[in-house]
Design a protein around this nucleic acid. Structure first.
Lengths: 245, 245
DNA sequence: GAGTGGTCTAGACCACAAT
DNA sequence: TTGTGGTCTAGACCACTCC
């Protein structure tokens, strides 16, 4: 399929959306690795027999979804999970002064297990399927602020448990580098809960104190869930910021 | 300023961004009322002496910010505050089944007062300036779920207090219809707090129970704060959903 | 200097809404 | 049928990066 001028697919959709889909598939298939440059607009236009403007609309749409990053004069790059991206897309906790702080982490547990029903449902696994669980205590400015439980499929992330204390702060960079898994987006459910005895001990607060519980499901390039994450945050000195635009 | 070909402004910015700015100013000034149709792309292009494509990029950018809504075959319409918009942009509470429910409301208080320091700071007012405060209890499916305190400037919203029990559920529609104030975006700070005695009484829960507190600042078309809103939600049967894209 | 994406233009045709 | 925005094309020039 080189010419898309009159596609053979059952396509009533605009050409640029078809091109976006095609390019996204090639990207998700790993043809271009994170950080690499895609072929130029003119090269892609030649390859598919469409105009440069059509490729441009497709790439602009992909850039809007953070699949690629466009650089004038340099080219179009496959999006990487940098610390900045983690910060801007996935980190919403701010200090009382309104400044964003990145956490440091202490891994309390990191081992294999079998998927419980909630994990299986969230991650699209069979119940009892092998998983890796990470349990971390995270500090903001030396203050223990956040307890975090992460669950991923052990088939998708073989040997993840071996990282143990060496797990980096930003695990999405690790997912991408070691496992070719790119977290594209996520959804978070927020609730207020009461600290149980363990929460209280780890966070140095009273049992029953209010905590902000965040349940995140992270989604990869193929729109499949890849990580389930539950966080419990002490919001005495921090808050979760959400911009409604 | 009819020809923008070689602008006299200290402008190194792209033409389409200058056009977007100009059109946004005309819109914010009230030249086109909510629901009205803007002049067509060709008419605007003629008026400013630029190509239709440039106007198109400006309007597309405005549509991305929800300032206007584009309809093929009909024209470009100034965005209105409909119930759908309130729902999709400003309402983030979902039931445990994942369904979005709109609240019903009971106004507990609606009267004038003088800005306290937090209100004055948030709303860019002098401390002690006249304000209107609304205090509502909101129900989701017959269950009292949410206490809400709203503060706005009494100068900007003269006579708002007279609505009392007749306040509609979606006050942003009222702001736009009665006061020509369009809420374009907002930011929300979320924290977990413990219910005080009043919270507990109104929501039918235990004192000290965890509540999700949402502090919202609403921003108008001119990027000025127009409303401060604090909500305390019982998240036993609901949660706040945030999509990280 | 060569190559890239960003902007701007101009024109053709299509899909859709209103009449 | 008329006019609107949506798509697609083609070409020119600009700003920027890299060699």
């Amino acid at each position: 399929m080189t010419s898309a001028g009159n596609a053979n697919a059952p396509a009533f959709r605009p050409l640029y959306l078809q091109m976006k889909e095609t390019l996204t598939q090639r990207l998700a298939a790993g043809e271009w690795l994170p950080g690499a440059l895609l072929p130029s607009e003119t090269a892609l236009a030649r390859e598919y027999g469409v105009s440069q403007g059509t490729i441009r609309k497709a790439l602009d749409a992909m850039a809007a979804e953070r699949l690629v990053v466009r650089h004038q004069g340099r080219g179009t790059e496959v999006a990487r999970h940098t610390t900045e991206r983690s910060l801007f897309q996935f980190w919403h906790l701010y200090g009382s002064d309104g400044r964003r702080q990145l956490p440091t982490s202490r891994v309390l547990e990191c081992r294999r297990g079998r998927a419980r029903s909630a994990e299986a449902e969230t991650l699209n696994l069979e119940r009892g399927a092998p998983v890796v669980r990470i349990f971390r205590l995270r500090y903001l400015g030396n203050r223990p602020t956040l307890l975090e439980w992460i669950t991923v499929s052990a088939e998708r992330f073989p040997g993840l448990e071996r990282f143990g204390q060496q797990l980096p702060n930003a695990v999405y960079e690790l997912y991408q580098r070691e496992y070719r898994v790119t977290v594209q987006r996520a959804s978070e459910e927020l609730r207020a809960v009461a600290a149980d005895a363990d929460d209280a001990r780890h966070l140095g607060i009273e049992k029953g104190a209010p905590l902000l519980e965040i349940r995140r499901t992270a989604i990869d390039l193929e729109n499949q869930p890849v990580e389930m994450r539950v966080s419990r945050c002490d919001t005495a000195h921090h808050h979760y910021l959400n911009e409604l635009v």
